[in-house]
Amino acid sequence: MCVSDAEADAVSDGYVYDPESLSAEQCTGDACAVCHTRWPRPRTALGVLPDGMPVFGCGDCAELVGAGSPVAADTRVFAAR
């Protein structure tokens, strides 16, 4: 299995992703686990796979799922694909 060069120290509260629901690129950290974006390479840890490997997402998706930096309640958040 390929190893991602992103840091795994920011994994959010141990959320475990089902590898059956992710593509091979998402499992190896080459694509965002939420929106499938490949570039720029996702660098925010969203959780882990059952084997302990981290699952990464892009900055926008990390904020949407609560793994990114906190967003003020009065701030609009948009997701586009």
Rank of each mutant, 00 (worst) to 15 (best):
Q26Y: 12
P19V: 11
P54K: 03
E63I: 12
G52N: 03
D74N: 14
A79V: 00
E63G: 12
A80C: 11
A80F: 11
P50N: 05
L49M: 09
A33V: 15
A6G: 05
V71D: 07
F56Y: 04
S21D: 05
D13N: 12
D5A: 07
G14D: 00
D60H: 10
H36T: 14
R38E: 06
P40N: 13
G47E: 01
R38T: 15
A10T: 04
A73N: 10
F56A: 01
S21Y: 12
R43C: 08
L49T: 11
P50Q: 00
V16K: 01
R81G: 15
C32W: 02
D60F: 00
L46N: 05
D51A: 05
G52D: 02
A79E: 09
C35W: 02
A79R: 09
V77E: 11
G59C: 06
A8L: 04
P54D: 07
A45N: 08
G29V: 13
W39N: 13
C61G: 11
V48G: 09
H36P: 04
T75M: 10
E7C: 12
R81W: 09
S69G: 15
G57R: 06
A73Q: 10
P54R: 04
C27L: 06
Q26W: 13
L22M: 01
T37K: 12
G52T: 05
A10S: 09
G68N: 08
V11Y: 00
A33Q: 07
P42E: 05
T44M: 13
Y17K: 06
E63R: 13
P19E: 04
C58M: 10
V16Q: 00
S21W: 14
A72G: 08
G14R: 03
D74H: 14
D51L: 05
G57A: 14
A67Y: 01
G14W: 00
C2E: 09
G47T: 10
D51P: 06
P42Y: 09
G59N: 07
P40I: 11
V11W: 00
A72E: 05
R76T: 14
G14P: 00
E25F: 03
T28M: 08
S12V: 01
A45L: 03
T75N: 07
Y15Q: 01
D5V: 06
P19M: 08
P42F: 10
V34K: 00
V77N: 08
A33C: 15
V34E: 03
F78V: 14
P42V: 12
T75V: 14
R76I: 11
A33D: 02
A62P: 01
A6I: 02
A33F: 09
R76P: 10
G52H: 04
C2H: 08
R81V: 10
A33M: 09
G57I: 08
V48S: 09
C27R: 07
F78D: 11
F56D: 04
A24W: 15
V48E: 05
E7W: 13
Y15A: 01
V48N: 04
G14N: 03
D5N: 10
G47S: 07
V3E: 12
P42W: 03
W39D: 12
D5Y: 13
V48F: 06
A72K: 08
A73I: 08
P50G: 13
G47H: 06
A73R: 11
G57V: 10
D30S: 01
F78N: 11
V3N: 09
V11K: 06
M1Q: 04
D18E: 13
G47R: 02
A80V: 09
A24M: 11
A73P: 02
T28V: 13
D13L: 08
E7P: 11
P42G: 03
